[in-house]
Amino acid sequence: MMKALAREGRWIAISLGITFAVLVLSILALRQNPLTVFGLLAERLLLKPYGLGQMLYKATTLIFTGLGCALAFRCGLFNIGAEGQLYAGAFLMAVVAPHLPLPMILLIPACLAIAALGGGLWGLVPGWLKAKRGAHEVITTMMMNFIALALTNYLISAHFHEPETIHTAELPVAAYLPQLPMESSAVNASLFVAIALAFAVHYFLWSTPLGFELRAVGSNPTAAKTSGVPVDMRIFLILVLSGCLSGLAGINFILGYKHYFEQGFASGAGFMGIAVALVAKNYPIGVIFSALLFAFLSQAGLTVQSVIPRELFEILQGLVILVVVICQNKYGGAE
């Protein structure tokens, strides 16, 4: 596996190089001095605990959704439902947690479990449809995204919102995850949960018999079935587990930052998870770094918006994905 990482490393370096070159050329084309822009980036982002903290905060959400996507992709299922799973998990947690009279030491694990459960439920439906009816997961997970979005929006507007807001009631203080001391940036202990989870997923996939089996289903479901693996059950399990991981993404905003569910609070993080997983070549540890890269581009876009249109950094995000996908197809990546 490490060998594979080393092999991929080359292409990742190349794609980063291309991205950087395009960035510099675009800055020049905008008649700005690249040094000024990088100076600004360094000053406001890299050398400033607040900027770094915001980047880590953004990365945290992306690690969760990236892991959810990577697990499914690694096991051969193109689950693009991270967005909906995120919202389902976050919403369930945000409306249930305030009613749990638990001390902190129990409440936080309970919140994590509820978020995972919500995301898992959202993965369960496509899982069941795929395993039992053969319905393609791309279609079903996409549909579940629409449902999650519309349903949470409706429930918030109709029942759960606080007056004059579009968010739910605040969680009890016992459910707060501690913020990290980075100039009151949003980054919080969810980051450690995310990183621990990345290592856990890595261990699960490469060091347990069940993880091996799930990867086998991804590699060649027919061969797995021929060797006695109950493939339908496993497909179901993969989509549920993947949903659980994405479902946890909401803890970053809800337990660690604002302490309530707000409509569209992480819009796009689920879809960005797809990109994070692709660039990480579906390696869980790689997801951490890939999430950091996308978080950096996002925060950088915000930081230098007064000099450079933020769309440039969105284009760069697309470019990274494109280059990685091209390299993968041309040189036969891990898939």
Binding site: Q54, Y57, Y257, E262, F265, S306, R310
Partner: peptide, 12 residues
């Protein structure tokens, strides 16, 4: 001026 891309970016 700044146009944020996600909820957490407003405070940001």
């Amino acid at each position: 001026y700044i146009e944020p891309t996600e909820a957490a970016d407003r405070e940001n």
